[in-house]
């Protein structure tokens, strides 16, 4: 298999694995466990899409939940108010349409917000994106046709294991391929040194806005998945804390490490649930599980400031396992 088609092969393997896994998962898990699995998948999409902005491009955005909200509201409103509940193939097709519509509207919002705010750097950008995230939430709270602060309820539950993880697979495919192209190099160069990047002709604004728009697009799709699983969405679900949660996943996983970020998203979504059940020396962890959660964040940042997989290189790792030497330099000297 030439490396030209490897990404497509991995995508196919991913799809096959997801479909294969869906049977035991649907059959063997109760609805509570299934909810955790789907939530893990949605968190992974959110974290991996924010990683494109915060990790690879180095633009500290604190408003990702805002894009998720726009996607969730667009998709849910389309389903409940325009299409209505459907079944079978029509349902699957319409679900795809509303998810993409949610993604596109979030991407447009990303473009509108990105162009003015990406002129700022670091803390200033963080504050502006935080502000935009809150504006989106407050605006939604005040649109009566969209339910105001009560939100939209009675959304049909279309989101399945296959939908969630299928979209995650597409996101990983898009990210990994982008990172191997001029876009990926533009993102990384922008992160490392903007002035140097500009000096060799890299339009840093273009790359920042692109990362922002692609990230917002997938956050919007994650919102659509969330709405169609929860069957109820409220503006409060997409508040500042949600944005922070996603940022924590990215930092914890290791900025710019797709696999690390996915791992962190899974752990941070699963851990608070898992700690409910733990009992040690007669102490029930459920009572102070959030304390343990917070403590583990602090410890991790002290002992692994680069994140879980911050300096982990998958290709390097596979080479090591196979016992092959480091990539040889090109033949002639």
């Amino acid at each position: 298999m030439s490396r030209k088609h490897r990404s497509y092969l991995y995508l196919l393997i991913g799809f096959a694995a997801i479909i294969g896994l869906s049977f035991p998962f649907e059959a063997g898990l109760n609805s509570y466990d299934m909810r955790i699995v789907i939530n893990v998948g949605i968190s992974m999409i959110l974290a991996a899409s924010l990683n494109l902005i915060n990790g690879f491009t180095g633009q500290f955005s604190l408003g990702h939940a805002g894009f998720m909200a726009i996607g969730a509201y667009t998709a849910s409103a389309l389903t409940t108010m325009v299409f209505g509940t459907t079944e079978g193939t029509t349902q699957e097709l319409l679900f795809l349409v509303v998810l993409i519509a949610g993604g596109v509207s979030a991407a447009i919002a990303g473009l509108l917000i990105g162009i003015p705010s990406l002129r700022l750097k670091g803390d200033y950008l963080a504050i502006v994106t935080l502000g935009f995230g809150e504006i989106i939430r407050v605006v939604l709270q005040n649109i009566e046709p969209l339910g105001g602060s009560l939100g939209i309820s009675g959304i049909p539950r279309y989101t399945t294991f296959i939908w969630t993880f299928g979209i995650l697979a597409v996101l990983i495919f898009v990210t990994e391929n982008l990172m191997r192209s001029t876009y990926g190099r533009g993102f990384l160069a922008t992160r490392d040194d903007e002035i140097a990047a500009e000096s060799v002709g890299v339009n840093t604004t273009k790359y920042k806005v692109t990362a922002f728009v692609v990230g917002a697009f997938f956050a919007g799709i994650a919102g659509g998945l969330y709405g169609h699983y929860n069957s109820l969405i409220r503006p409060l679900d997409f508040g500042f804390l949600k944005s922070v949660e996603i940022v924590v996943m990215v930092i914890l996983g290791g900025m710019g490490s797709t696999w690390g970020v996915l791992l962190a998203a899974a752990l941070l979504t699963y851990l608070p649930e898992a700690l409910r059940e733990v009992e040690l020396f007669g102490i029930k962890f459920r009572d102070f599980r959030m304390t343990i959660y917070a403590l583990s964040l602090i410890l991790l940042m002290i002992f692994r400031p680069q994140g879980l997989l911050g300096d982990f290189n998958a290709e390097e790792f596979i080479r090591k396992i196979r016992g092959k030497p480091k990539k040889p330099a090109t033949t002639e000297t």
Partner: peptide, 13 residues
Amino acid sequence: ARTFQNIRLFPSL
């Protein structure tokens, strides 16, 4: 094209 007085490479690349 230019170079810089204090070298400006992309350190992580």
